[in-house]
Design a binder for these strands. Sequence first.
DNA 1: CCTGGTCTGTCTGCCAAATGACATTTTGCG
DNA 2: CGCAAAATGTCATTTGGCAGACAGACCAGG
Lengths: 230, 230
Amino acid sequence: MPQQSKFWYLKHFNIFEGMDDATMERVNQMSAMATIKSHQPIYFPDEPAKTIFFLKEGHVKISRLTSDGREVILDVVGPGELFGEISFVREEESAGELAQALDDVMICTIKKTDFEDLLKMHPDLNFQVTKRIGLRLKKFEERVTDMVFKDVRKRIASFLVRYAEEFGKIKGGIVTIKMHLSHQEIALLVGAARQTVTTTLNEFRAEGLIDFSRQGFTINKLDLLRKLST
Amino acid sequence: MPQQSKFWYLKHFNIFEGMDDATMERVNQMSAMATIKSHQPIYFPDEPAKTIFFLKEGHVKISRLTSDGREVILDVVGPGELFGEISFVREEESAGELAQALDDVMICTIKKTDFEDLLKMHPDLNFQVTKRIGLRLKKFEERVTDMVFKDVRKRIASFLVRYAEEFGKIKGGIVTIKMHLSHQEIALLVGAARQTVTTTLNEFRAEGLIDFSRQGFTINKLDLLRKLST
DNA sequence: CCTGGTCTGTCTGCCAAATGACATTTTGCG
DNA sequence: CGCAAAATGTCATTTGGCAGACAGACCAGG
């Protein structure tokens, strides 16, 4: 992979917007690129040199394992986002986070310590990162709210809308989304049983709201779906 | 309230640890103190001058209202924490956050813009704030995990343990906690019906795990309760 | 020291969804 | 290509815990 390319990618993360070329070059020095094939895990090299990742292409599932070995899906991130131990909160006890490529992925890695130094030297960047974390916080607030108040059907509708808004492409009023998640994974995200997800999705299809195969979804009536999720 | 006192309080938030006296004095200039009586709301003055709050004494419930007017409890914060629009994420649409004193509260307020300036000048401080937000993120991750995998009984046990660890006082193996939340509020936090919370708490009491009146709780067997929450 | 309002306690019926148990389809891969 | 593994689709069955409906307890403020 030519240097140019990496540089280009880095520069096009909005998080680096407004940084001078010299600093960009420094970032370039500190970072390394990697590609991961679909379904492969992205290893979090263990202590002490934790790593921060920038996602350049593809989609990554961030999850954790509970003590009894079940998977919790924390988030699905797309191009331009960063993940890893971004919040700088020590992971004392648990089996830490775990990331898996949902399609072919290109990432850029940087050592946590290097990244910290960078942040301390660039308040704007730090500010950007803080905002990102804040955004994720909001997402979780949403998720909790949904779980407290909505039934499964609404939660699934809600999930579809959000996924569409985040990753979908609109063509003439119809949203198409590559779906990287199995019903099981959707179930974990919305807090439901796998079978219920399957059934509900089929209901939505029968009602003409959505269409789907294993490759992806199209949402025909986003507004209606949004209304259903309320 | 004498200046000294305010200064003292500010200095004892660990977030300001390691800052020089001159800066502290500046922070002191920018901030104002206020006391709020139990059960009173803490007003978030609307646009454009948003405010950041430092909680000095007491406990505050942070919640939001859903579009249909129901309350979601996002968090309960105790002394030393900060709240308000900390994450700098614009609150576009929704009815923003809403804070209510759970007991007599003393806070220190600072304009968001001033706070931002301060952060930009003090990378360490900025970093501290980022960490705080990261911590809240973790809390939410926990909450979501609980809602996905645990039944109500476990969630309530889990809540008690966390509340105890955060706000309780240990005396000879027994934890006592002032409880500022009604069963209804606990229900909103754990995602359950009020009646179920009441019943479950009484079960725990019958089993000798906890004791409680309307003023507070004592947890007799924290370890056992922790085991129950798994 | 009343008294209206908010919290707590308890019971009953009921239903959304979980569980479990399959058949069927799809997909990755040797 | 062909086969095992994984992902879907559809049942029937069971159940956790919600909703509603009260009664009693506990305030706070006149």
